[in-house]
Every structure is written in structure tokens, then in C-alpha cells.
């Protein structure tokens, strides 16, 4: 997912930069008579319509939906300065896993990384609250939990791991 996000971002950023560049180049050209107000209105409506479309498309399925089916399993994760406690070492492949995440002291962030060190999903760990997030693993192997919220001097050492294993039906 990240390469796609990066590509889209860079392309749109480049387009905006290019529009500025064209205006700068046009500074020394003779002024053009064009209907600025109309173009601005078009731009605003274009952005609004696109925004409505993208908002609906990206929120129709609630990104934080928690799996409630029969096969969903729960993994409790607790953070503390500076450790992660995960109440299981093995997580089943292909089944929705509900992570219930909290902390014993300050704010932390639970980030799950695959063996290529790609971040798959994250959620904050809040004192006094349990944040929930669902993820379904589609590859077996060793996964790491990294801390995503600054929590003091050993923040970068706050890691743990778990295995995703295939289970027989």
C-alpha cells in the first residue's frame, strides 16, 4: 500500500509545483484576458466533488471495523516503559485477529511490522483505555511489534515479536 500512497502523493505534489512554475514563467508574458472567477469556481467545485467522492469511497467500509465473526480471535497487547507484553506467541493465519491494546504507564503505539520491516497496521496504546484494531494476516512468519509513539529514552528499543502460523481446519 505504501508505494502506491507515495506515488500518488508525489504525482499530485509535482502537479501543484508545476502549476506554480507555469505561473512564474507566465509572469513575463503579456497578461491574458481570461475569466478568472469562472476558473476559480470550476476549481472549487472540482475539488469539492472529488472530495465527496474520495471521502465516501474511503469511509464506506469503516477502516477501524472490528471483526465480530465466530472465527475472530483476541490478542491482548500491553505496553509499558519499555516493553510489550503479547498474551500469545502464535497467531493463526487467515483469521481476523482483534488486537486489544493498552498501556500500564505512558502513551505508546503498537505498530505491527512484517519480516520485510513494512508497517502493516498500528493503533495507539492509551493509559486507562483499550484501543481495538483488527488485522488478518495472509502470510505465515515472524512479525515484530515496534513502538510508534514517543515514550521516553528507550522508545526505539521497545520491540517484541510473534509468529503467524497456519492452522489446520
Amino acid at each position: 500500500m505504501q508505494p502506491l500512497i507515495l506515488t500518488i502523493s508525489l504525482v499530485v505534489m509535482a502537479v501543484v509545483a508545476l502549476l506554480f512554475w507555469r505561473s512564474v514563467r507566465a509572469a513575463s508574458k503579456p497578461p491574458q484576458q481570461e475569466n478568472v472567477g469562472k476558473r476559480r469556481t470550476q476549481l472549487i467545485w472540482g475539488l469539492v466533488v472529488f472530495g465527496v467522492f474520495i471521502s465516501i469511497a474511503s469511509l464506506r467500509e469503516w477502516p477501524h471495523a472490528i471483526a465480530s465473526g465466530e472465527d475472530a480471535i483476541v490478542v491482548n497487547v500491553t505496553g509499558g516503559q519499555w516493553w510489550w507484553e503479547i498474551d500469545t506467541e502464535e497467531v493463526p493465519l487467515g483469521k481476523p485477529v482483534n488486537f486489544f491494546v493498552t498501556t500500564e504507564d505512558v502513551n505508546h503505539g503498537m505498530g505491527i511490522y512484517n519480516s520485510d520491516m513494512q508497517l502493516l497496521v498500528q493503533v495507539q496504546a492509551m493509559p486507562g483505555y483499550t484501543n481495538k484494531v483488527t488485522y488478518t494476516f495472509d502470510e505465515p512468519g515472524l512479525y515484530q511489534v515496534l513502538c510508534m509513539e514517543y515514550c521516553g529514552v528507550s522508545h526505539h528499543d521497545m520491540t517484541n515479536e510473534f509468529n503467524v502460523v497456519a492452522v489446520d481446519q
Partner: peptide, 9 residues
């Protein structure tokens, strides 16, 4: 929100 899950922090 969907992007933020993998880009936040």
C-alpha cells in the same frame, strides 16, 4: 484513516 494506519508516526 486508511492511509494513516500505515503512515502515522
Amino acid at each position: 484513516i486508511a492511509v494513516n494506519k500505515v503512515m502515522h508516526n
